[in-house]
Design a binder for these strands. Structure first.
Lengths: 158, 158
DNA sequence: TCTTGACCTCAACTAAGGTTGAGGAATTAT
DNA sequence: ATAATTCCTCAACCTTAGTTGAGGTCAAGA
């Protein structure tokens, strides 16, 4: 008989790890980041709700959608802790995922169009190349070495 | 008269910073990573070729396309150091950018389709949800807390 | 009861892509 | 000639998303 099945139906961190595919260290890390809030037993060990399986599975899915841990934490604050999300919860969340993804696809498609408009012209050496002004498409990855908010000076070359 | 315009037409790191919009520290960092190979003057200061403006602009564009510094370094090893890239160079490179971008767009579109197939079903609580098996779409961001190569166990919940 | 095995904390380490600061040398402007 | 910039190196630090290991405790089965 599995230890997880006796007494209460609280789960140990190991149980949760097995059920979600997350490593134990990742689950502790996620707790630290506020994604789950396990209670503790008398001996100080973490005890998770069964609903936390779903909660962490949500984290995995959201990560695949490109959300950061911080963004996921914000989403989770709007979901119930102890019960399963309702259909309304899921509709709202999936709508946000949809928008996030659509924006990313749009940015990449716009970048592809710019690339296509450049393929024939060899314009990597031209100051007017659209690709050098593709700054808006970089907003996804943010803080690079670029000048603040796209005020990159014109690239002047022969 | 600009210091960059007297004597030879080599550029200081400050000149290059102004011309590309990169910070001085970023340019030093890129040198360390093998993206540029400036010479040194008698006093030990870096001196860049005018072609390095283009070279670093290429780095910026490639980063917007989602290439890592290491990947960009590999691309640059196939470009000439001292002269402008030829049309053939640019055609090859832009073709690689195109493929890279197309693959990303495909992955995201596939993910969006899975999401759409789930929006009505509230399946975030179901073990059969396609999103839980969207692992192939995550290949872009790679090394997360996921089980090695997608052998995530089935998520079993009530 | 005793011995594994699972769990605990805390600190340090990883990778990418840089930034920041200290302390000093070179160059440019006055 | 001197002051103000710019440049140099090197080391330490930042963020994100975790992993790894040391040293110690808790819980479950024989």
């Amino acid at each position: 008989m599995n230890k997880a099945m006796k007494g209460s139906d609280l789960l140990t961190i190991g149980d949760l790890s097995e059920r979600t595919g997350l490593s134990v260290s990742a689950i502790r890390f996620y707790e630290e980041k506020g994604l789950v809030h396990p209670s503790r037993n008398a001996g100080g060990q973490r005890r998770f709700l069964r609903a936390d399986i779903r909660r962490l599975s949500f984290v995995l899915v959201a990560q695949e959608f490109g959300f950061s841990i911080a963004e996921i934490a914000a989403q989770l604050q709007r979901l119930p802790e102890g019960r399963a999300p309702t259909k309304a919860d899921w509709t709202r969340i999936s709508g946000e995922f949809r928008m996030h993804l659509d924006r990313k696809i749009e940015r990449m498609t716009a970048l592809r169009d710019k690339l296509d408009s450049c393929i024939g012209c060899g314009c990597l050496s031209m100051k007017s190349c659209q690709l050098y002004n593709a700054g808006d498409a970089a907003a996804s990855k943010g803080r690079g070495p670029r000048y603040l908010l796209g005020d990159r000076p014109e690239i002047t070359e022969d």
